[in-house]
């Protein structure tokens, strides 16, 4: 190996890292600049006059706390319910025997090719008729179960040895007890993986919350941010502060639990 090659490869890797991170760096520094300061040429990366006024504005006048609470409760709600429902049926698909199981499971898997947008109008009309539009349930209820989630849990639960379940049943444990005391604890890693996926997916989602939350007090953070953009398109620094607040929670969750997140991507790609 030529020594020059090693240097070149490492330089390329660093350059890509810079290109990946630069937009975030600029977002963070612009969010601390005074109004109008980021409109400079050449672009600045360090604020002349450091200020937190945009954050104060967002949390004060612009009511961002409401949207953070909305986003948090909705994301946690979807995550909580979908972990329970998906783990129950993922376990059933992995370990129970019943007529038509294979057919049912492949019907579920193959229907994943249908884009979610197809269902949006009928689901919206249904939710409107039962009065759930502009409530958290409009996002939580349709998100309570997912085919991807069932698939993920099933793949994992299949590796649990039957003998464990058998011996528990011989000891007199019922189906629910087996699920609660054996399956759930053993599934901890995959539950974490699915939990992170669901939480981040719900937090980041835009189209569905945009449709079902028409009352501004019910907006999620991304919807509020897009709406703010319409009114404050000139206020670069304010918009950057809003972006920092929107992105920060998911980045923290990812950095803390990245091992489980990466594992989920791999598992999802194993079978496809």
């Amino acid at each position: 190996m030529k020594p020059g090659r090693k240097i070149i490869l490492n330089i390329i890797v660093v350059l890509i890292a810079v290109a990946t991170f630069l937009p975030f760096l600029w977002m963070i520094s612009a969010s601390f600049m005074q109004a109008g300061e980021s409109n400079s040429y050449p672009p600045k990366l360090i604020p002349d006059n450091f200020t937190t006024e945009h954050y104060e504005n967002l949390f004060g006048r612009l009511n961002l706390t409401t949207y953070i609470i909305n986003s948090l409760l909705i994301s946690l709600g979807v995550t909580f319910f979908s972990l329970i429902l998906n783990s129950m049926s993922g376990y059933a698909f992995a370990k129970y025997r019943f007529a038509g199981k294979k057919k049912l499971f492949s019907l579920l898997l193959s229907s994943m090719i249908i884009p979610g947008q197809v269902t949006m109008l009928p689901v919206f009309l249904t939710l409107k008729n039962i009065g759930l539009i502009n409530t958290y349930w409009a996002i939580i209820v349709p998100g309570m179960a997912s085919i991807f989630g069932i698939f993920l849990i099933r793949q994992f639960a299949m590796s649990i040895p039957d003998s464990l379940i058998e011996s528990a049943k011989i000891d007199g444990a019922g189906d629910v007890e087996v699920y609660l005391k054996i399956i759930l604890p053993l599934c901890r890693p995959i539950l974490l993986t699915l939990g992170i996926f669901t939480f981040m997916g719900t937090w980041n989602d835009f189209l569905w919350p945009l449709i079902v939350m028409t009352d501004s007090s019910m907006y999620t953070l991304p919807v509020a941010l897009a709406n703010l953009m319409g009114e404050h398109v000139q206020d670069t620094e304010l918009m950057m502060a809003g972006s920092v607040i929107t992105i920060l929670p998911v980045v923290i969750v990812f950095l803390l639990l990245q091992k489980y997140y990466i594992k989920g991507i791999m598992m999802g790609s194993v079978k496809g």
Binding site: I16, A17, T20, F21, P23, F24, W26, M27, M200, W203, N204, F206, L221, P222, V223, L225, A226, M229, M239, M240, G242, S243, T246, I247, V250, V251, F254, Q258, Y261, I262
Partner: peptide
């Protein structure tokens, strides 16, 4: 670092 943009909110990224 390369993975960071994947987990961030698309709307916020579009704003940036």
């Amino acid at each position: 670092t390369y993975f960071l943009p994947v987990v961030t909110t698309l709307v916020a990224v579009a704003v940036i």
